[in-house]
Amino acid sequence: MTTTGMAVSAEHVDVRGRRVWLARSGHGEPLVYLHGPGELDGWAPALTLLARDFTVYRPDHPGFGRSDDDPSVDSVLDMAFSYLDLLDRLGLDRPALVGHSLGGWLAAQIAVLAPGRVRGLVLAGAAGLRAGVPAPDIFTLNPVQDAELANHRHGARAAAVAAAERITEDQELFQRYLRNRMATAHVGWNPYLHDPKLAGRLHRITAGVLIIWGAEDRLLPVGYAHRWAEALPAARLEIIEDAGHRPQAERPEAFAALVREFLA
């Protein structure tokens, strides 16, 4: 794990008999970052910047990365219940939630389930809603195709594609990739990465919401950002130019600045 800022510590945390892999860094108010399905490096560049002002927690979801499977998880709603246990275990009464992609869907689901537990909600490139905008089926993509579609800026894309081409060489990393893919399929296969009931429940969210989207997102095109904005009329929508599906990795300064300002 590399960072140019504060040290990141990571360890397994026991949550009701299951081990959750948790990385953390920084100081200040708590901010829980909920990752997307493809994130294997564990610490998105924007988190290093956010750790200057927040205590950033970055768990691996149940069944993902280095966390144990949770047999009770068959849906994102089940994941949300599991996360309430984690928040209790960490003593986080009312953290900010920053969720990306699948993690954005999860963050919204937690905020619907337990509105009082969320200080502020940031949804970045969030799955969870269906927009009627054509989008690729990630479950048909190989790692290289996924890397090509997920990244916009030339340097980021080239690096991600190169890493994807070598993914089978590092067995430990490859197993994590396969676990993430399997766990994502388990909760997002059908309906395809969305919950038809979610939009009708979003009114239960009481925290302020910031929607962040990469203008050049090709996995969940920006039409999905407008769908979220329509479903959450009080939310603020920010489109980051020159970024794809992972603005927190491609435009970390812009991403962190928006989050910092929103939570101030």
Binding site: F139, T140, L141, N142, T168, Q171, F174, Q175, L178, R179, R181, M182, T184, A185, H186, W189
Partner: peptide
């Protein structure tokens, strides 16, 4: 068919999947 359609996520155990995809 594309390999990721032939062997979708979780169809094989991660161990078998690693062998097939390599």
């Amino acid at each position: 068919m594309p390999r990721d359609v032939f062997f979708p996520a979780g169809y094989l155990t991660p161990a078998s999947s690693a062998r097939v995809m390599a």
